[in-house]
């Protein structure tokens, strides 16, 4: 049966020469199709003597199997090649920039406000807001600003024309509103816009503050120091940040203090930013003045409290290096994009 071996050899050569699946299919039909060479061979079996038929049949079947296998192998190779070509054709430049909208961003003042808010809400402080156009009562009288006291004039207040109203000079009026609304005990923070008649590198006529207030039983300066230490260390992400309390005067607190932090740029050894003092002024605070608590119907023998007010632009200056605070309100997109 040399012919069959010859046939297999010839099929192998032709399969190998097939460069496409279609060509390979032609080869398959030529050998294994209904009218294929091997099918013809099987038909010829009938003409053989009966005793020779089984052996011959076996040989033909083996040849058929051999050819099927070599065609399958070739098919597999061709499929792999086709896939590889497809993949090569589909390849893109993965370094191309993406397509679509490009996100904007938030304002640096909002960033700082949210950061302060986030820290205090973890301590159970609720966020309160108040009106920006205020009256004398909430902005001054209830906060223990006496009518003729220079502290009042020092506030550089904006007044409305022909109305007994003003633009709040601090967020402290929210202390009054919150105490009158909720009473003691209470813990709130009040972020918002504030206004003073002042304009230079370190002052804009509008700026932001966050007010903090805690009224409860037995609240002391030590508690104020505790919370502010925690806050400022967390805010600046510096667990070794030191605080310095300097006595100061705000009519609505007594005792009052201004808080300095050890300079975050030189760790207190002295540099240009801290004017070689090693300390940076960050906020004002104190125990809520008993006159303020009494105005809000809080029993000062049962309760005491602390309050603080921090300037957001000041924190932005220290945290992000925005040294000219007027930039905050020019809204130059090239400035704003840096805080996205």
């Amino acid at each position: 049966m040399l012919e069959l071996d010859q046939l297999i050899h010839e099929a192998r050569t032709r399969a190998a020469a097939s460069e496409s699946l279609a060509a390979l299919d032609e080869v398959r039909v030529h050998y294994l199709g209904k009218k294929g060479v091997l099918t013809e061979q099987l038909k010829v079996l009938g003409s053989l003597p009966a005793m020779d038929r089984p052996a011959a049949g076996q040989r033909v079947n083996r040849a058929k199997q051999a050819i099927t296998e070599l065609l399958d192998a070739r098919r597999h190779t061709l499929e792999e090649q086709a896939l590889a070509e497809q993949l090569a054709a589909d390849a893109v430049d993965v370094t191309l920039p993406g397509r679509g909208q490009e996100p904007g961003g938030m304002h640096p003042v909002t960033r700082i406000l949210e950061r302060v808010q986030a820290l205090f809400t973890t301590l159970g402080f609720r966020v309160e807001v108040g009106p920006e156009i205020e009256d004398e009562f909430h902005n001054f009288d209830a906060l223990n600003f006496k009518p003729a006291h220079p502290a009042r004039a020092e506030m550089d207040t904006f007044y409305l024309k022909d109305r007994p109203l003003l633009l709040r000079t601090h967020t402290s009026p929210v202390q009054i509103r919150a105490l009158l609304k909720y009473g003691a005990p209470l813990r709130v923070i009040a972020p918002g816009r504030t206004f003073r008649h002042d304009y230079d590198v370190t002052h804009t006529p509008m700026f932001h503050q966050v007010e903090g207030l805690l009224v409860d039983k037995g609240v002391s300066m030590a508690h104020l120091r505790g919370t502010l230490t925690d806050f400022l260390q967390r805010f600046f992400e510096k667990d070794d940040l030191k605080l310095r309390f300097r006595p100061s005067y705000f009519p609505f607190v007594e005792p009052g203090a201004e808080v300095d932090i050890s300079c975050i740029f030189c760790d207190g050894s002295g540099c240009r930013v801290c004017k070689h003092a090693g300390w940076l002024e960050v906020l004002g605070c104190g125990l809520v003045h008993p006159n303020v608590l009494e105005t809000c119907h809080v029993d000062t023998e049962r309760y005491s409290g602390w309050a603080f007010g921090v300037g957001i632009e000041r924190l932005g200056m220290l945290r992000y290096g925005i040294n000219d605070i007027r930039m905050n309100y020019e809204n130059d997109l090239r400035f704003l994009r840096q805080f996205r």
């Binding site: 909208q101 490009e102 996100p103 904007g104 961003g105 938030m106 304002h107 003042v109 909002t110 920006e132 904006f158 633009l167 816009r193 206004f195 006529p205 509008m206 905050n328 309100y329 809204n331 997109l333 704003l336 994009r337 996205r340």
Partner: peptide, 17 residues
């Protein structure tokens, strides 16, 4: 705010007057 930011808006803060 985050919806607008994701849609390409930049937040600004301008004076109240």
């Amino acid at each position: 705010r985050d919806i607008l930011i994701a849609r390409g808006y930049q937040e600004i803060i301008t004076y109240s007057f």
